[in-house]
């Protein structure tokens, strides 16, 4: 496949998205903890959390809240605001996850509402023996609390390719 990074694609780098709302809830924390397979009661039970020194259920590492689902403007597959997530673009149809990093300024816990903006950080082409030309899309999301303070930055790398 003859895939190139166009100037139009390059121009999207650094453009900040509109803010969207993410909620860190007790139910969201429990659902994530079950999905991962945690057996630690601190992520499920308020009393166990209190015994461990938390006023609210703490968010497990990597769980940054659940984006509020808005029909029509949330991606129905990836549950993130459209345009921000791993939905393949640029005429490519296949996606794999390349990597994730979260950098916290402080711990997150149930009861928080976060305002999240997202931007494209980098586009790179790589050749893979099995997948052919791969476009590596790097994004960074910034999570702010109600006071406007940055709580977490999350970097994501997605691999787009064509079958």
């Amino acid at each position: 496949m003859d895939f190139v990074i166009t100037t139009e694609m390059q121009a999207e780098i650094g453009v900040e998205s509109a803010a969207s709302r993410y909620e860190v809830t007790t139910t969201g924390i429990r659902a994530f903890a079950r999905g991962v397979g945690y057996e630690d009661p601190v992520y499920y039970d308020r009393e166990a959390a209190a015994t461990a020194g938390y006023e609210q259920l703490p968010a497990p590492p990597g769980y940054l809240g659940t984006p509020v689902y808005l029909p029509g403007s949330t991606d129905p597959v990836f549950s993130v605001p459209q345009g921000s997530g791993p939905r393949p673009r640029y005429g490519l149809t296949r996606v794999l996850d390349g990597g994730t990093e979260a950098i916290y300024e402080r711990p997150l816990h149930a009861g928080e509402t976060l305002s999240v903006t997202d931007r494209l950080v980098d586009l790179k082409l790589r050749q893979s023996r099995s997948l052919g030309t791969m476009l590596i899309v790097s994004r960074e999301a910034t999570y702010r609390d109600q006071a406007g303070e940055i709580v977490v930055r999350e970097r994501s790398h997605y691999i787009f390719y064509e079958s």
Binding site: G53, P61, T100, E101, A102, I103, Y104, R106, P107
Partner: peptide
């Protein structure tokens, strides 16, 4: 993240994690 959390036993805070 669970590996780290289970080991840490809430004696601290995971400030950065990557994969």
């Amino acid at each position: 993240g669970q590996l780290v959390s289970d080991w840490l036993g809430h004696q601290g805070f995971v400030r950065r994690i990557s994969a």
